[in-house]
Measured scan of single mutants.
Amino acid sequence: MQRVNMIMAESPGLITICLLGYLLSAECTVFLDHENANKILNRPKRYNSGKLEEFVQGNLERECMEEKCSFEEAREVFENTERTTEFWKQYVDGDQCESNPCLNGGSCKDDINSYECWCPFGFEGKNCELDVTCNIKNGRCEQFCKNSADNKVVCSCTEGYRLAENQKSCEPAVPFPCGRVSVSQTSKLTRAETVFPDVDYVNSTEAETILDNITQSTQSFNDFTRVVGGEDAKPGQFPWQVVLNGKVDAFCGGSIVNEKWIVTAAHCVETGVKITVVAGEHNIEETEHTEQKRNVIRIIPHHNYNAAINKYNHDIALLELDEPLVLNSYVTPICIADKEYTNIFLKFGSGYVSGWGRVFHKGRSALVLQYLRVPLVDRATCLRSTKFTIYNNMFCAGFHEGGRDSCQGDSGGPHVTEVEGTSFLTGIISWGEECAMKGKYGIYTKVSRYVNWIKEKTKLT
């Protein structure tokens, strides 16, 4: 034993070699072989497995989906700052455009905790909710729209109204504003409101030439003092309507412009014939205590009207009353817009006519005020429907199939267009061939041609 100890002390290297040989010859039971080890760690190889990531292109799944990435790591994937920024906006807080917040056709661009709407022409605001041009839906104005110097929408209202708090709607500024039905039992019968379409306001006024200088022999019209197929109006439903009495009662109609003036057809009036105007009328054979009678003290036909040349060209006249009318729910003026808007309103496509005229061709006159909704007829169809001249200051309205029309005794009465609950004068009943005849239409004086003249002559002093 002493000898062994001496050998170990003198030859430590020998001992180490012996131990190493023993270990190498022993069977290893701690580690699995290569094949079995792979069965336990069965993990798919990654895209760049075996390579240094710093030297390969980034992978979106590896960089940002398996674990949260930084902007720089995302930049490695896209290799483009702009594309990385677009991805980053949604990656950080989701897609803010998912709810489609942009209105009126706006395009949404996502941002971090926010979004941006790219608005089409005519709109602005956070969600493109603000109209900035009158060309689109009248700028959301209830009545009139004008573009300011910086191309912003400025709404306005006709006389007797003021802008509401929203700067879009119009509200009454006087007790009985024009064009409004205020009798409670008839307010439910107000005709369907007309909503502004998209309009090209630059070209809204037709490029028409008034044929002022045409000389033409007097034409022989049949029954051209021209509501057939209409309905009984309720008291106060058309408070701007008046009836004219002269040699015979209810020979023509008219509309209240203001307390002192009536507008009617020029062919209705004769110099030297006494005319009485009755406002607030409903049943011409009954006294309903809503009527107001006034005498006409002055007749002003349009300066281009000449019955000797043509009885229905420039067929418009103004009547001055001896005493002002007292405005109330049964006696209310009709609204008159400017030339541009009167023309736009007419193009809405349908209007209402009213009167006490004959209820059928050569038949009896109506006792109760009649009204009828009539569609506008395109000019080409209008011209083809008659052998008589249709001037540019006239328009056609009615039904091709016949059966409904204005008729004798309705002449001078109103053709009105309702705009968001307020009625505007767009025409004056003038003439036609018979009444409600198939293929024939009622012919009306186009008020847009005469609004400046009306307003100039009827100013209240």
Rank of each mutant, 00 (worst) to 15 (best):
I299C: 06
A308G: 11
N283P: 05
D200I: 12
H361V: 12
V374W: 04
K51T: 08
V153C: 04
T215V: 08
P44R: 10
N213W: 05
D212W: 10
S11R: 14
T209H: 13
N36K: 12
I429W: 09
G160N: 08
Y312I: 08
S169Y: 06
Y91Q: 06
G236C: 03
K446L: 04
P172V: 06
E433V: 06
I7L: 11
R180S: 05
N328D: 08
L211K: 10
C28N: 04
E420P: 01
T186E: 14
D95H: 14
I136C: 05
N59I: 01
V374I: 08
V195F: 09
T290M: 08
C69I: 00
E165P: 12
D410N: 10
E61R: 04
E76M: 01
E116V: 13
D249R: 09
F78C: 03
V353S: 06
I256Y: 00
H302F: 06
T287N: 13
N138W: 08
A164V: 07
N203T: 14
V56G: 03
V368K: 14
C396K: 02
Q185D: 12
G432M: 06
P177N: 01
C108E: 01
F238P: 03
E259C: 04
T287C: 07
N313Q: 13
S169Q: 07
G403Y: 14
R358V: 06
V377H: 03
G253K: 08
F345C: 02
I344L: 15
G402V: 14
E86H: 06
C18G: 10
H303N: 09
N135A: 14
L327W: 15
A9I: 10
H302K: 02
Q57R: 00
D131P: 13
I309Y: 06
A173H: 09
I40A: 12
W261V: 02
I299P: 03
T381F: 12
F345H: 03
T85C: 06
I256R: 00
D338E: 08
F238R: 04
C28I: 03
V331Q: 00
A192H: 10
V257D: 00
N42C: 05
N38H: 13
A26N: 04
S204V: 15
R384F: 05
A397L: 01
V257W: 01
I299E: 05
N203Q: 07
F224K: 14
G94P: 13
W431P: 06
R191T: 11
L346I: 06
Q143F: 04
G246C: 04
K293W: 10
Y161S: 01
K109D: 07
W356R: 09
F360Y: 15
F55W: 08
N245V: 10
D223N: 11
Q216M: 12
S187G: 12
E159I: 08
V228R: 12
V153N: 06
G272C: 06
L376D: 02
C141M: 00
V278D: 03
V30K: 13
S114F: 06
F87W: 14
S448T: 05
E270C: 07
M394D: 01
N36W: 07
E418G: 05
K457L: 11
N245I: 12
Y47C: 04
F87A: 03
D322P: 01
N222W: 07
E54V: 01
V199W: 12
E270S: 06
M394A: 07
M6R: 14
P101N: 05
V416G: 05
A436L: 09
G58F: 02
N310L: 04
H282N: 12
F388W: 10
K455C: 04
D212Y: 14
K457H: 15
C141R: 00
K126H: 12
V242M: 01
I334H: 00
L319F: 04
I300W: 05
T186G: 11
P175G: 07
A265F: 02
R162N: 12
D223P: 13
G363K: 10
G58A: 11
C407A: 04
N127E: 06
G413I: 09
S220N: 12
